[in-house]
Write a protein that binds this DNA or RNA. Structure first.
Length: 590
RNA sequence: GCGCCUGUAGCUCAGUGGAUAGAGCGUCGGCCUCCGGAGCCGAAGGUCGCAGGUUCGAAUCCUGUCGGGCGCGCCA
């Protein structure tokens, strides 16, 4: 439970008392309305504020200011015995007599058109800081999403070439999403889906063989240095079998690929090269701090019968029909603009058929929720996959697609066009060696997943030293330095901060620190990380201001020093947790 | 043509029903005898694309419109 939740309870109980006392015509039991509590931007408006009186004006048929006054008076009434409040992160109880837990609210004021502004007690601030200091490992984490097991599939680039900076968006967006869901208490499985048996793999093999043989690569083959490297490394036995038969285990999709060429040349080389590339991709992702739990191949979905069974499921439910020799899914039943082919007239299943099989396979593993991170160019396939899930009897809401916006990569003002086939691309590894993982992570974490971004590589390099991430990291390093200094002179943090938080620089910093759990809760609910980077910047700013105004290490005043050390350490823990949640390092020295 | 995303400060982006719309970078001006100046303080800079509507209240919700991106295959 956060301070915000506690405040909500205080407000609801005050409203209830006002209704029972007759100053308001109806209480929370009679009127259905959500009590929203927010952190006002203007510090003059208190620590927390609620607009409940404005929202009750219509149902209660009263002026907002009168309602606000009634509720505020009830909150402020010291004679009123307090009902037990749920503990604030289990901490406030410890400071209170069990029979009468204290309210975290010191005072309520009516302001503006009917807002109720609330002031937190110093005891509430101190008890929340104590939670951070006592249990840094879980500080800020929420259990709201416990029990939900989520599958997040992202990147999923076919292994026909190294990851490019075009894949960076999905990699970071997906990983950041996973991290914020985990912080919200959910269980997450990170999944990478790829095709190890399609025509592109064969195409890759032919390209490798062609380069090795010194002949021109096929017209739509792959180019680039990495192909030359693979050609050099290709084992002799695979190089000799240019026309080797296709591996039977991969049967089911892509076979012949409908182009009539029908020969199996390049298969073994292609599969060898594909696996080489895949492990290279895994290594690249590892340098980003991105690790997958499951690597799933399209071929396995066919081999294990998932596609076939899913198609049967749709057929049994009456959602399939035949036309022009093909089998169609009646997607229009569920609002799609047109029906979609599942089995082509040549008997081959479509990519969509694999998607359908994959949905059933994922749900068979017990997930409550599926999330797909797709590029914006895939939005056309969202409806059909969700429709198919619905047609098979799954909850549509449990199948969610998040579309990442376009990243337009620019170098010196000129757009960098990228094509793996043409061998013209900037790899993810190159990007990171230029700007660094921490800066790249911060860049993507601080922007919405679905917005289009212009990314100027030269500008990013140039500005990397001024990246806001260093501002936050610097605050962390500065605190670490202060703590080292304190230890040198024999000063230690004290747990009893009573009196130190009263107003002044301490109160201002403490008020930002204690907000952290709410920031994480909001981020998890919105499935976004921008709020975390914004908050981390605010916290760093608050610390730097505190540092300016308050001397922390002062041997002549160990009591004040001790309390300030505790506050500063809670700040350090919070910065480290926020950065760590985003996969960014929190250095003790820079 | 239809559908989805998007338009906020010079630039890159936060802010999705609340009080005076924010940050970083850039520009201009200040601050190191003192725990880390990768810092601090201040200034300039915005008809939130435009027009209607809903609401006590709209950058935020609805409708229309203009600009940008993407999609509309028995490709993956």
């Amino acid at each position: 439970m956060t301070l915000r939740d506690a405040a909500r309870t205080v407000i609801e109980q005050a409203w209830d008392r006002a209704a029972r006392a007759g100053t308001l015509p109806a209480g929370p039991a009679e009127v259905e309305v959500e009590i929203t509590v927010e952190r006002p931007a203007n510090p003059d408006h208190g620590d927390l504020a609620t607009n409940i009186a404005l929202r009750l004006a219509k149902p209660l048929r009263m002026a907002p200011a009168a309602i606000a006054t009634a509720i505020a008076d009830a909150i402020n009434d010291p004679a009123e015995p307090r009902k037990p409040l749920s503990p604030i992160a289990g901490a406030i109880d410890e400071l209170a007599e069990p029979s009468k837990p204290p309210s975290p609210i010191a005072a309520a004021h009516v302001a503006g058109p009917g807002f109720i502004n609330l002031q937190l007690t110093d005891a509430a601030l101190e008890s929340v800081l104590a939670v951070a200091l006592r249990d840094p490992g879980t500080w800020g984490r929420s259990a709201v999403g416990a029990q939900r097991h989520v599958n997040v599939e992202f990147v999923s680039a076919n292994p026909t070439g190294p990851l490019t900076i075009g894949n960076a968006r999905g990699a970071f967006a997906g990983d950041l999403l996973c991290r914020v869901l985990e912080a919200g208490g959910q269980r997450v499985t990170r999944e990478y889906y790829f095709n190890d048996s399609g025509a592109q793999v064969q195409n890759l093999g032919r390209s490798i063989l062609a380069v090795r043989a010194g002949v021109p690569v096929p017209e739509d083959g792959y180019h680039g240095d990495y192909i030359a490297q693979l050609a050099r490394d290709l084992p002799e036995e695979l190089a000799g079998s240019a026309a080797g038969p296709r591996d039977g285990a991969a049967a089911g999709s892509g076979d012949g690929s409908g182009d009539g060429s029908g020969d199996g040349s390049g298969w073994k080389a292609g599969q060898w090269g594909s696996e080489r590339i895949r492990s290279g991709i895994e290594a690249s992702l590892a340098t980003l701090g991105v690790h997958f739990d499951v690597w799933k191949t399209e071929g396995s979905l066919h081999a294990e019968g998932w596609v076939e069974r899913a198609v049967e499921k749709l057929r049994a439910a009456g959602h399939l029909y035949e036309q022009d020799g093909a089998v169609w899914f009646r997607s229009t039943t569920f609002g799609d603009g047109k029906d979609r082919v599942v089995i082509r007239s040549n008997g081959e299943p479509t990519y969509f058929a694999s998607d359908i099989g994959y949905v059933t396979e994922k749900f068979s593993r017990g997930f409550d929720h599926l999330i797909y991170i797709w590029g914006a160019d895939h939005h056309g396939t969202v409806a059909r996959v969700r429709n198919a899930a619905e047609a098979m009897g799954y909850e549509v809401a449990a199948v969610e697609m998040i579309l990442t916006g376009w990243v337009r990569f620019v170098r010196d003002g000129v757009e960098v066009s990228m094509s793996k086939r043409a061998g013209n691309f900037v790899t993810l590894d190159e990007l990171l060696s230029e700007i660094g993982v921490d800066a790249a992570r911060w860049f993507f974490a601080s922007r919405g997943a679905n917005v289009n971004i212009d990314f100027d590589i030269e500008l990013a390099k140039k500005q990397s030293n001024e990246n806001p991430v260093y501002y936050v990291q610097y605050a962390h390093a500065r605190i670490a330095s202060i703590l080292r200094k304190a230890q040198e002179v024999g000063l230690a943090a004290v747990t009893d901060m009573s009196g130190v938080l009263r107003g002044g620089p301490e109160g201002a910093l403490a008020r930002v620190v204690v907000r952290y759990p709410e920031v994480i809760e909001d981020a998890a609910a919105a499935q976004e990380t921008q709020g975390i980077t914004t908050y981390a910047t605010e916290l760093a700013t608050a610390f730097h201001a505190f540092y300016r105004d308050a001397k922390v290490v002062d041997p002549s005043d160990p009591a004040t020093s001790g309390a300030r050390l505790a506050l500063v350490d809670a700040t350090r823990i919070t910065l480290a947790n926020a950065l760590g949640l985003l996969g960014i390092s929190a250095p003790d020295a820079m």
